[in-house]
Design a binder for these strands. Structure first.
Length: 221
DNA sequence: ATTTAGATCCTCT
DNA sequence: GAGGATCTAAATG
């Protein structure tokens, strides 16, 4: 989608053919970029992800090898997008990982907004900047991402959504991990620490250890 | 600060 | 027909 020249100085995104649990923490610090229909760029740094390896993990949409029309893109090669609709009103964005047929994906849960912020504010009217893309559905709203972006191939130069490495000169912060959100009834699988976030970032969702309460911790120079 | 309920509709059984 | 990888506003301590 974007060349490194076009974006505010960023390198290549990490290899997406690895398994979801490996890729998820590596996406932290990377730049998610959206080119709006008018050509404007909107995006930010990824600060929170969750791994959904599929297979025996019952919390994944691809659990047990289930193939449905909805999750078709999850089964594609790493580097595609899986965008799904939930709760009657929300879209959520995943980056597919692994080789074709593995059914793995990483849910992108939160961004630290970096550019196109005015544009995000327009779509998230009434909300403070901190909440522009704090949470998977808010993120999609801020970047105007919906079902039309399902199945996109990230590396396609014409793709309206792109993934780049961390902005140059920026060292990604320390990575913390914990249980994934919103899948409590999946018992033991819910307890796996497959949620990853940038420690100390105020743009991370949730209200627990990784959420607002973490403010102040690890944030001192 | 934390908890609760309601919204809202697509997807799969 | 049930339930969902969520969000928001309102109520409560």
């Amino acid at each position: 989608m974007l060349s490194t020249a076009e974006a505010p100085v960023a390198g290549r995104c990490p290899d997406l053919l690895g398994n979801a649990v490996d890729v998820a923490p590596r996406l932290l610090g990377c730049l998610l970029v959206r080119r709006l229909p008018g050509g404007r760029l909107v995006g930010g740094v990824i600060v929170e992800t969750e791994a959904y390896p599929g297979g025996v993990d019952t919390a994944s949409h691809s659990a047990g090898g289930r193939r449905t029309p909805r999750n078709e893109s999850m089964w594609r090669q790493g580097g595609h997008l899986y965008v799904y609709f939930t709760y009657g009103m929300h879209w959520c964005l995943n980056v597919v990982t692994g080789p074709e047929g593995s059914g793995e994906a990483v849910l992108v849960r939160a961004l630290e907004p970096r550019f196109g912020i005015e544009s995000m504010r327009r779509r998230r009217r009434g909300h403070p900047d901190r909440d522009l893309a704090r949470g998977p559905a808010r993120l999609c709203q801020a970047l105007a991402i919906d079902g039309s972006h399902d199945r996109l191939w990230l590396a396609d130069p014409a793709s309206p959504v792109g993934l780049l490495g961390p902005p140059s000169g920026e060292r990604p912060g320390a990575v913390a991990c914990g249980p994934r959100i919103g899948i409590e009834r999946h018992g033991a699988w819910a307890r796996r620490r497959w949620r990853f976030w940038v420690r100390g970032s105020r743009f991370v969702s949730g209200s627990g250890e990784a959420g607002p309460r973490e403010r102040g911790a690890g944030n001192h120079p």
